Amino acid sequence: MSHRADYYLAPQSPWTYLGHERFAAMAAQAGAVVRVLPVDLGRIFPVSGGLPLQKRAPQRQAYRLVELRRFSEHLGIPLNVQPKYFPVAGDDAARLIIAVDLHDGTQAALTIAGAILRAVWAQERNIADAQVLGQLLAENGLQPQRLEESRSAPVQQRYDANTQEAADLGVFGAPTYAVDGELFWGQDRLEFVQRRLQS
């Protein structure tokens, strides 16, 4: 019996970026059924006790930069800890991932999500810019009309539903991986995710 892996992500999250390729590879190796679920952290934080980065205490903000550097070096994943386009609104990128998922399937959604995350954290690109999102589609062999489709009511409804589902499950940050309903928060928990997928 294959496991179900629900992937709650935010396309502007550095921690989602650091875990993305490893999670995708683990899930594929395990033959898991993956659901790619972009969520709106702006609606998750207020109901879960979280704060946007700018509102966190200075010592927390400073330590975050240390940890990002540490994980980037440890994992060998390039990352600009203070990229040019951050903070950045992630809603349009999240909706694009959903549109790709709806029309092209899970693997394509994982591909465009990875491209969007790299754009922010490794390539100094603005994912709130429609032109950049169009370029990312083209670079990954996806149809340009996905951008227009990402602005549709069904996509917004899916985004809202993902966010509500996450809040109802007790998700409070990104990335969160739920394997058969069991929550694992953060890319530093991927070892536990892997064990669960192999059980």
Rank of each mutant, 00 (worst) to 15 (best):
A161F: 04
A167I: 11
A32V: 04
R158C: 10
F45S: 05
Y85S: 00
Q107C: 00
L96G: 08
P52I: 03
G90L: 06
F23A: 01
N140Y: 09
V120S: 06
E149Q: 15
P38Q: 02
T16Y: 02
P175K: 00
Y8K: 01
R35G: 06
R125T: 05
S150K: 11
L133D: 11
V36K: 06
A161I: 05
G105E: 01
V66L: 11
Q187N: 13
R118M: 09
Y8G: 00
A10G: 15
Y17S: 07
A5F: 00
R146N: 14
M26I: 09
L137R: 09
I116T: 12
S152K: 10
S48G: 04
E149F: 15
R43K: 14
D168E: 15
L75F: 14
R195Y: 14
W15L: 02
Q82Y: 03
P78V: 05
G49D: 11
A99S: 15
G31C: 07
R60H: 13
L75A: 07
R125N: 08
R64N: 07
L110E: 04
P14C: 02
S150A: 14
A138F: 07
S48Y: 03
G134H: 11
R69F: 02
L96K: 10
A128S: 15
T176V: 06
D40Y: 11
I127H: 01
E139L: 06
L147H: 13
D6W: 04
A27P: 08
F71L: 13
R64Y: 00
H103L: 14
H3V: 10
D180P: 07
S2A: 15
V100K: 07
F71A: 13
L65I: 08
F86D: 03
